[in-house]
Amino acid sequence: MMAGKGADAEERKPVLELRQVNTHYGLVAVLRDVDMAIYPGEMVCLLGGNASGKSTTLKTILGYVTPSSGEVVFDGEVISGKSTTEIVRRGVSMVPENRRLFGDMTVEENLLLGAYTRTDKAAVEQDRQMVLDTFPVVGERLKQKAGTLSGGQQQMVAMGRALMANPKVLLMDEPSMGLAPILVDQVFEIIKTIRSLGRTVFVVEQNANMALSIADRGYVIQTGRVVLADTAANLLANPMMREAYLGEL
């Protein structure tokens, strides 16, 4: 799960796979023949410009929208077409775009809601402890209303909440969005920490440089099509990438 990356991972079975997925909103095609695979313990990022279909990819995985063709396979079983509740229950959890905490509830309640589908009280308590150890700031504010936290603190709670589900795959939608530059660094530190816990992470980012610097592999998507799929190192070196996404000429 650390070095070796791609080669090592490819021998195993992917934990999450998109096979020729097409997703429509009404008549508008947003994802076109998308193929992706994420292997256990990997950290994969999904890059792309505005409205390229990044969030839609995550929504398709989580069952907010059902693909019009193709399938999403999780843990060896087709999950496309199943309800979000069912998909979450099987072990996918998401840190939504803009954090979207339950603002009127306390930080503690937010964390507990993350573990809503779990019945194993002792294990939940263990994970709670793990989250509090990972984010000490969260522990200091358990009784505070989540809506009153600062943006950076909210991001930590959002991640903690997603971790409380003890997911097999953790989806993140633009965790650095709307944060001041120092906080962006902090968020990527957190993602690194989560990664070092051995989690499988699939993260959508606009901040390509940062994302590639911590990911194993990356996909690049343009108007709903996967246009590049490679290891992070190769993507960072790719001239096309450098021009289009990494802000260099």
């Binding site: 979450v88 339950f102 603002g103 809503y116 589908t117």
Partner: peptide, 16 residues
């Protein structure tokens, strides 16, 4: 409570 505040995210918590 969660559903009232944000139905979509409640769904993502596995709340039916």
């Amino acid at each position: 409570n969660a559903m009232r505040e944000d139905e979509q995210v409640a769904d993502a918590m596995g709340i039916s």
